Amino acid sequence: MKIKIIDLFSGAGGLTEGFRSSMFDIVCHVEKDLSACKTLQLRDAFYYLKSIGKLDLYIKFLSGKIDEEELFKYIPENILSKTINKEINNHTIDSIFKIIDNSLSKKDKILGVVGGPPCQAYSTIGRATNKKIKSSDIRIYLYRYYIDFLEKYSPDFFVFENVKGLLSFKDIDDDYLFTPELSNQVRKKLFAHS
């Protein structure tokens, strides 16, 4: 039985590629950028066609003999709909949970969560550039939604990819985002079900 995972803040799928194997079943990707979502769908299409021995269709697409619309006619809807093109925020999180839950059978369990919330606000290189928008930069707090997914699904593992600057970053109130107290609170919440 494959290990079911969800992929958050997917981007174009760089982290996802590390989990594409016979061991894992990527239940969904959640990404707000439409171009990145198209890339994710094309990667899923590639792997689907490879699994059924029809990579010739993908090669036709790459060589311009068929377009994306024609290619996607050969891909089952459940493969294409793995990509959820939504920003994760207070208004969308419940609908994203619902989409994920509806894609699972009653016996399925999410065993892993992978992803990396945007790092521009924390990166030591980006801090100088982002300093003037710090008070309105919602990316600073997107990691909290990642925690919401961990709390909801209580996975056996998670991979949270981010930059070194996350631990030393101070928010608009000049407070560290990850204090020892917050780390302990998060740890207690995440491992309460273990």
Score class of each variant (00 low, 15 high):
residue 153 Y to S: 13
residue 77 E to Q: 02
residue 10 S to M: 13
residue 44 D to I: 04
residue 76 P to T: 04
residue 54 K to M: 10
residue 68 E to I: 05
residue 145 Y to H: 12
residue 165 G to T: 05
residue 14 G to M: 02
residue 71 L to E: 00
residue 180 P to V: 06
residue 155 P to D: 08
residue 123 S to K: 10
residue 194 S to T: 11
residue 158 F to W: 08
residue 47 Y to L: 07
residue 82 K to D: 09
residue 106 K to I: 11
residue 167 L to P: 03
residue 95 S to A: 14
residue 139 R to H: 13
residue 125 I to E: 06
residue 19 F to N: 01
residue 164 K to M: 13
residue 132 K to P: 06
residue 17 E to R: 09
residue 62 L to Q: 13
residue 126 G to Y: 13
residue 105 S to G: 11
residue 193 H to R: 07
residue 42 L to E: 08
residue 171 D to L: 08
residue 78 N to V: 02
residue 109 K to I: 12
residue 82 K to R: 14
residue 81 S to V: 01
residue 160 F to P: 04
residue 70 E to F: 01
residue 163 V to M: 12
residue 38 K to W: 02
residue 147 I to S: 04
residue 68 E to L: 05
residue 175 D to K: 08
residue 132 K to Y: 14
residue 133 I to L: 06
residue 14 G to P: 01
residue 148 D to R: 14
residue 173 D to N: 15
residue 49 L to V: 05
residue 138 I to V: 13
residue 3 I to R: 02
residue 135 S to N: 13
residue 188 K to Y: 07
residue 74 Y to T: 00
residue 69 E to F: 00
residue 15 L to H: 10
residue 178 F to L: 14
residue 138 I to A: 11
residue 43 R to A: 04
residue 183 S to N: 12
residue 95 S to M: 14
residue 175 D to H: 09
residue 174 D to M: 11
residue 150 L to E: 07
residue 33 D to H: 07
residue 41 Q to D: 01
residue 11 G to C: 07
residue 114 V to R: 05
residue 47 Y to R: 02
residue 1 M to C: 06
residue 171 D to F: 10
residue 70 E to C: 02
residue 17 E to W: 06
residue 118 P to C: 09
residue 90 N to R: 11
residue 18 G to R: 07
residue 109 K to S: 12
residue 173 D to E: 14
residue 11 G to I: 08
residue 190 L to W: 06
residue 37 C to W: 02
residue 179 T to C: 10
residue 142 L to I: 05
residue 190 L to D: 05
residue 79 I to M: 07
residue 32 K to W: 15
residue 98 K to L: 14
residue 126 G to N: 09
residue 64 G to L: 08
residue 46 F to W: 14
residue 156 D to H: 12
residue 151 E to D: 12
residue 30 V to A: 10
residue 140 I to K: 04
residue 184 N to A: 14
residue 15 L to G: 11
residue 67 D to Y: 01
residue 29 H to K: 01
residue 194 S to V: 11
residue 157 F to K: 04
residue 178 F to W: 14
residue 145 Y to R: 03
residue 178 F to G: 04
residue 150 L to W: 10
residue 12 A to Y: 04
residue 143 Y to F: 15
residue 23 M to R: 09
residue 28 C to Y: 02
residue 146 Y to I: 05
residue 140 I to Q: 12
residue 49 L to K: 03
residue 146 Y to Q: 05
residue 67 D to E: 10
residue 67 D to R: 00
residue 42 L to Y: 03
residue 50 K to H: 09
residue 152 K to D: 12
residue 26 I to F: 05
residue 71 L to I: 00
residue 145 Y to M: 06
residue 133 I to Y: 09
residue 12 A to M: 07
residue 35 S to N: 13
residue 19 F to I: 02
residue 85 N to F: 11
residue 150 L to F: 08
residue 163 V to W: 15
residue 176 Y to V: 03
residue 158 F to E: 12
residue 155 P to K: 05
residue 161 E to L: 13
residue 122 Y to T: 01
residue 33 D to N: 14
residue 152 K to Y: 12
residue 93 I to Q: 11
residue 94 D to W: 09
residue 129 T to Q: 11
